[in-house]
Amino acid sequence: MPEDSVDRALLRHHGDVDARPGMLDFAVNVQGSAPPDWLRQRLAARLDGLGRYPSAEEADAARRAVAARHGRRPEEVLLLAGAAEGFAMLPRLAPRLAAVLHPSFTEPELALRAADVAVTRVLLEPPYTLDPETVPADADLVVLGNPTNPTSVLHPAGAIHALRRPGRIIVVDEAFADAVPGEPESLAGFTAPDLLVLRSLTKTWALAGLRCGYFLGDPELLSRLNRGRAHWPLGTLQLEAITATAEPAAVAEEQRRALGIATERAAMIARLTELGVHVHTPAAAPFLLLRVPDGELLRKHLVDKGIAVRRADTFPGLGPNHLRVAVRGGTEVDQLIEGIRTAGL
């Protein structure tokens, strides 16, 4: 897509803009308003040490914990101040042509365009199935989400492997993979010289304000991404959060949470469908893509009712009648259903 036809303001739009304080929040995909008590206690216990710089030993411990969690070597882990930092690093790979699969999270495309990297959009049509043949053969960087935001589609690992070509790097954004029971189709444990997997701790552990994530990949690729980075790129609390959430007990809790999300998602799909709302299925992530007759009118009506949903027309390939809603529990869904019903669409 030509640079002059791209609206960067739309690419910069995120769900937090749609949710004002005090609103019932279906716009942001973070689970809960704060980390669980045990994680808060781990972080609080480190407060007295904030007067000193984070040590190399602490960073190494976090890398080892993440590596053990995914069955990889510590040198295959690059710790990040949130997944957004990882996207900002992508231009350091110096691609000639980056292909970004859409509809999907827009931050990677924005980061690449801001660095004057040539970008082509590969627009997937409903049901948003990944067809490797639609990606231009000369694209030497391919970026996609799995499961994909906002469609909630989980692509087969085999289809992602089929994207691989000599001289091409594949970047898979797995920010929501830990919310899928068993993490099927994840490539986090797969080692290859042309594959980078990005993980975020923001959503499952309610750490949006702390900014924690990591890249998994070949050490040579990680070295290229890490080049020119500031000293002490992560603080003490970030390193503690990454270490804590990679431990076996936390991973087990993560999977219990994923099972709960799956149950809530199925119930939510049934209720929205019964109301006459089109919900894109199958859905695998902690959010759902809706299509309604007048999305902008409905969104404004819900705002008047104190309910925030995510406008989805900022995602390439989607329009004003698409909305994204986070998966929530029954009480919250009751209010969403009532809000949609009273809109009279």
Rank of each mutant, 00 (worst) to 15 (best):
A88K: 02
G339C: 11
R40C: 02
R12D: 15
A45V: 05
F190A: 10
A88Y: 01
L323H: 06
M23K: 05
L43W: 06
L144S: 10
A175D: 03
S223D: 14
R271L: 10
P282F: 09
A177G: 09
T243K: 04
I170D: 02
E85R: 14
T273N: 07
E183Y: 01
L195S: 02
L288V: 10
R73Q: 13
A241E: 06
D140G: 09
D16C: 07
I307N: 11
A175T: 08
L198C: 06
A252K: 14
I340W: 05
A267P: 00
A115E: 09
L154C: 07
I242C: 01
E85Y: 01
H301C: 03
T151H: 08
G260Q: 14
T202E: 13
R257V: 09
E3W: 14
L225T: 04
C212W: 02
A62L: 04
R42V: 15
L222H: 06
T151V: 09
L43I: 07
T331P: 02
G71M: 09
Q31Y: 10
L47Y: 08
A208P: 00
R164Q: 13
A326N: 11
A98Q: 09
A94K: 15
A84C: 01
V100Q: 07
V17W: 10
F315M: 11
L93D: 04
A81L: 02
R92G: 04
H161R: 15
V279W: 09
G235R: 09
A285C: 10
G217T: 11
P181A: 06
V251A: 14
A250I: 07
E125K: 14
L144Q: 11
A241T: 08
Q41T: 13
Y53R: 13
L110M: 11
A44W: 05
A62V: 03
T106G: 06
A9R: 15
F287Q: 06
